[in-house]
Design a protein around this nucleic acid. Structure first.
Lengths: 219, 219
DNA sequence: ACCTGAACACCGTTCAAGT
DNA sequence: ACCTGAACACCGTTCAAGT
């Protein structure tokens, strides 16, 4: 019954899951826990530390690394597992991307992925650049640029014609995506797009490894 | 002297440039303009619309598309130009990534990039997936996972040894990056990392185009 | 050691009123 | 048409005090 760090973090995660990250305030969270706002500050230093703690909770949910021998499927499986975990928490993307300092949990996860590349015969040099190229995709994040328009409004044809005139290429592309599922305004298959990009990167990494790429030669 | 939308947006950009995005509040901005907070609401509907307007200002600064014939160098130049523009505004990444609705300015920029792929012989289908794989990198954004530690604290050796034991692979990689510039704790060359990833993606796109990739065959 | 109460210095935004 | 004043319902956090 006594408050402690874990209880605070779990309640924060639950509140953010339920009502959205914009509803997570120290005051609201304290209310949820039946306690006065300042009581929280005995268990987390401030709101920043609360958010860091939430990321720890998140990472703890990622499935442990598979004992797979092949580096490519090992990395693939781990990233897709991270993706599944993060998808369970709508606030994850925004919170992870807003953290600057690396918590222990974050370092631990990155260490395991780096280890997979090294075990796969990647040089330390190449691994370094490869991890940068991966970017937030190691977390299974998609960094979308086209947010699918909310499927509620199916877009009236006059409006579409107007937009098609202003942005003909966007219109062609949107049309093509629709035809594939033979539904209109259906949007894209996020999982397909993610795996497309993931495999593109992994194949690229492999090719560089096989050709003995090094930053010295390239610069 | 009279307030108008452009004056409000320009002042917001200047304030965010100077004092950081966390200092940009409607109240503070109104103060900067020598006006009462509510005066702003005649020119922008709310804070969300203010932020959208700031992104418009940003995009207007991106150099127009080069009349280059080769799709690859055209895309490359445009993305790197976007990157230079966004780098002039420290708040750009955070604000762009937090916008969901696509403003006209955003659509216009995306339309031009899509057009470059289509002109380069990419199918509409492939272009669609390629744009997804690009993600926020079309803006020149890096979606870093290792923020370089603030160069102020050079990290004492005992601390480093401790971390190296917990995260051996991270330590090896950090060590390798340091050795390349023969300085310690110097961090990475962001521009190099960005172009590494950019070229990796562009080469991958090209390869898929040349092998006649289509989502139908792949699924 | 842990929780409380009151206060401080802020937010974004509504509403009715002024010129 | 454009700006104002006062108010509402919030924030995160400090500080001194309670048990």
């Amino acid at each position: 019954m006594a408050l402690n760090r874990q209880r605070v973090l779990d309640a924060a995660v639950e509140l953010a899951d339920r009502d959205g990250i914009e509803s997570l305030s120290m005051r609201r969270l304290s209310q949820e826990l039946g306690v006065v706002p300042m009581a929280l500050y005995k268990h987390v230093a401030n709101k920043e530390e609360l958010l860091n703690g939430m990321v720890e909770v998140l990472i703890a949910e990622i499935a442990p690394a598979a004992a797979d021998i092949h580096w490519k499927s090992a990395v693939r499986a781990r990233v897709l597992s991270a993706r599944r975990s993060l998808q369970r928490h709508a606030w994850a993307r925004q919170v992870i991307e807003s953290r600057t300092g690396k918590s222990q949990a974050v370092l631990g996860y990155l260490d395991s992925v780096i280890g997979m590349f090294l075990a796969g015969g990647f040089s330390v040099d190449l691994t370094h650049h490869v991890m940068h190229a991966f970017g937030s995709r190691v977390w299974g994040l998609t960094q979308e640029v086209f947010e699918d328009p909310p499927a509620t409004a199916p877009m009236d044809p006059a409006m579409f014609a107007h937009l098609a005139q202003l942005y003909p290429n966007v219109a062609r592309m949107a049309g093509a995506a629709d035809h594939d599922d033979s539904t209109v305004g259906q949007g894209c298959d996020d999982q397909f797009e993610f795996e497309f990009a993931l495999d593109l990167l992994l194949d690229g990494f492999e090719r560089l490894r096989d050709t003995g790429w090094s930053s010295r030669r390239s610069a």
